[in-house]
Amino acid sequence: MACPHYDGPMTKPLGIFTRAHRTALPVLTVVAAIFVIWYGAAAVMNLPWERDQAERAGVEFVLTDALSNTMAQERPVLPAPHQVAQELWKTTVEKKITSKRSLVYHGWITLSATLLGFLFGTILGMALAIGIVYNRAMDMSVMPWVIASQTIPILAIAPMIIVVLNAVGISGLLPKAFISTYLAFFPVVVGMVKGLRSPDALQTDLMRTYNASANQTFWKLRLPGSMPYLFTSMKVAVAASLVGAIVGELPTGAVAGLGARLLAGSYYGQTIQIWSALIAAAILAASLVAIVGLAGRIVERRMGFAR
């Protein structure tokens, strides 16, 4: 048997981070466009208030002055980006993280509920998916309920979860985590069911020719085959989990967490505070999704999926 030469394609593996360079320009362009639109909208939306002020004071309305004032109102309809940035800076870097006014403190409250809910959701989702794939009765009965569960507005069910759990003496972190779980398990179920069923007839026939047990087929074929699906759905789940945690903070009277900041902000018309909490939540969500994505890429690379 003489075939010493290597006749296969050998592409150099692309690094995880090299792709970032190529996408930087389009991303920056979009960000710039958003800022332009945001500033424009802030000017337009905050202008009527400046006009009212001028009228009430009986001074002449000067457009250029008024325009510059729209960028520095205390309770603007739409705060300008730099106002939000300043607020973010003030409430993260310049405040002690133990302070009730620190966004890091509130962010951590929300993050802890998010992570716990995400963990529960992932475990619950995987367990349900395994049941659905391996048990015909579960396949027929559970999936419709899983889908139905997501048609109920989370805002409607969140207060009930809080109230019911409170009645049995569970309060604090867990109820919020359960609301996160409620949102997070769904994408995991759907993704894992698809992933566990992803091995084709050939791959499963192969296991049959080896006379492999159901256990061996699960651990050596179905579970590893589902990994790319699992990480994709975990990315969706972690973002949903954050939404769940924030929503869970609203009905409790909003003592702490990003949700509390949003609610308090809207009670007192503190639009800058609302927007900074929103941006903080967005940054948190993006970071969580990125971390899960990176973990997924590392696992897939280790497993040989990535090329």
Binding site: L202, D205, K220, G304
Partner: peptide
Amino acid sequence: YVFQAAGLYPW
């Protein structure tokens, strides 16, 4: 058994 496709497990 050798199938039509190699059917190697990619991981």
